[in-house]
Each structure stands twice: as C-alpha cells, then as structure tokens.
C-alpha cells in the first residue's frame, strides 16, 4: 500500500520514467529491498487506472519511452495520505518513514506529520491508561504491554522530530 503512495509522491516533483522512479525509490526508501521493475509497472498501471497518474509518451519506442506524471486527483490523494495519522500498530515505522521523506521531498511540513502521529499515539495511550484504571489486573497487564509499545513508537517519533533537519539535508543532497 505504502509503495504506491511512495511512487505517487515521487512523481510530485515532476514526471519521470519508470526506471527513474525505481532508482529514486530505492535511494529514498529501499534500504533492504529494492523495487522490481515489474512492481513499478504494475503499480503504475493501477494508479493509471484510478486516474491518479497519466502517461506522457515520448518519441521512440520501448517501455522507457513512457513518462508518468501525477494528476490533480493524485496530488489530493497523496496530500490526504500524508496528513492522515496511521493507526498506531506495530511495525509502523516504514510507512511513517515514507511519509516523512515524501513530505520533506515535496516541501511539506514533516514535523507536522510526526506531531499528528504523536497525537494519535497519545490518544491511544490515554485510552489505554483509562481502560487500565477501570479494569482488573489482567486488563492492566495487557494495557501496559500496549502502552510500552506505544511509548517506544512515540519515543521514535520524538527522536525523528529532533533529527528532521539532518534528514532533510540528506535527502536534498
């Protein structure tokens, strides 16, 4: 899911060839696993179908001749996605990371992304704290488990917030 938003987001700064798109994605997000060409084209096909991107054909032939550009609908879509807090759950980081990097790349306020997420985390933590106060010991233990995980995420959010400047510099390079 986040791959398609990532690719869509990468197009925001201007139309690209599929090959460019793969390279940019690998540079920004593909630390451990690079993207297959196939995955790029299939994702693009889906986005095309949904009207979020359009294809500009250049003279010549072959797959490399296709340049993808984002549509207005695509921009609205990515805007909504970046601004929407994720439901706090384990292994959230990759999605958040994608959002932060995209925000930085497209000149959006990345710290707001993180603060929105933090608020969402805290909201859930409040809920857990509240539930803990009502329930029995079993509830308390379960809630604590969740709370500690949420806290770890939240600490990561805080740390990332503090390091946004460095991240931005790295991406701009």
């Amino acid at each position: 899911m986040s791959v398609s938003f990532a690719l869509l987001g990468l197009l925001e700064n201007g139309p690209r060839h599929g090959y460019d798109l793969k390279r940019s994605y690998d540079d920004a997000f593909g630390r451990d696993r690079s993207l297959h060409y196939g995955q790029v084209y299939s994702t693009m096909a889906r986005l095309l179908k949904n009207g979020l991107v359009e294809v500009e054909l250049e003279p010549g032939d072959g797959p490399d001749r296709k340049r993808y550009a984002i549509t207005d609908a695509g921009i609205t879509d990515i805007e909504a996605w970046i601004g929407r807090p994720e439901k706090p759950e384990p292994y959230l980081q990759s999605t958040l990371y994608t959002k932060v990097v995209l925000a930085l790349m497209t000149g959006r306020d990345a710290s707001e992304v993180l603060d929105t997420q933090r608020a969402e985390h805290l909201r859930l933590m409040r809920e857990m704290t509240h539930r803990k106060a009502q329930g029995d010991l079993a509830d308390e233990l379960i809630c604590d488990h969740v709370l500690f995980h949420l806290e770890a995420d939240l600490r990561w959010l805080e740390l990332t917030t503090d390091r946004l400047d460095r991240l931005a510099a790295q991406i701009r390079r």
Binding site: A119, H121, L122, M125, R126, M128, T129, L147, F148, L150, E151, L154, R155
Partner: peptide
C-alpha cells in the same frame, strides 16, 4: 509519554 497519557491533551 506514559505520564503524559494521564492528560486530557498535550
């Protein structure tokens, strides 16, 4: 954060 979770808002 776990202390802040006792708040109404932050």
């Amino acid at each position: 954060p776990r202390v802040a979770a006792y708040s109404n808002r932050e």
